[in-house]
Amino acid sequence: MSTNEPRQTNAEKKDAARAAREQASQADVQAAAKKRRLWQLGGILGIAAAVIIAIVVATGGSSSTSSADLTGKPNGAAEINALFAGVPQNGNEAGNPNAKFTLVEFADLKCPVCRQFDVGAMPTIIKNYVKTGKVKIQIRLLHFVGNQDNPGDSEDAARFAEGAGLQNRMWSFVELFYFNQKDETTRYATPAYLTWLGNSIPGLNSAKAIADGKSKAITKQFASYEQQFAANGFTGTPSFLFGPTGSKLAPFQPAGDGSQPGSFTAAFDAALGK
């Protein structure tokens, strides 16, 4: 240490101490400002999180099906398997191939009105007319419901159904799907969901149904159904054709809203000459 350093006067010492205090004070002010800004940003992020949570709740959130929904057996699995026990199925057809009459349903698996028919009226039709060999039923699937919200969702379900048809279990799957149908504006017909349904149908290989459903032949089949739907002047689903097997089937308008067996049975009984 040099002894030649000039000594500070009292005034200089005071000035240095004041400068140090001011510097420390300024640093405190800056630190407080920084802390305040971070709190502000935290508040803003909190507002953003609250906005998003509110919107997600209001919109019902993302529409994919959670794995929690796929536990246990699907609704109506036992009843549907019992309903189709002893009923021959061939592709999109169920019932006695030589039945006197044929009922054709044009439907979309995600269509809620179709569900009303397939859950409300179809089980009775199957029990009283299909199982007894009087009427055979065919389903021709379209896939337009919910396409603006979830493109491909309805089609995936329809392709699975057609794949199940190649294993002669299409009607079992169709009915099971309707018994478990969800909000048409949500996306839920995922491979996992379809597999979960398919696994409840004895003898149905779900993985094969998914793979087979992707074929170009099924794409052509869908195009053909759409042409038939338009050619018959139909504009919504479900729509029906009914008539003697082997003849040209005519559009059939069920009585009422089509959700009750009586909407069909009176016409069936009249045709069968009861």
Partner: peptide
């Protein structure tokens, strides 16, 4: 500005 922009970004991201 930040209080408007950040929630706006979060909504747009959603």
């Amino acid at each position: 500005t930040a209080a408007l922009a950040v929630p706006g970004w979060a909504f747009s991201a959603y």
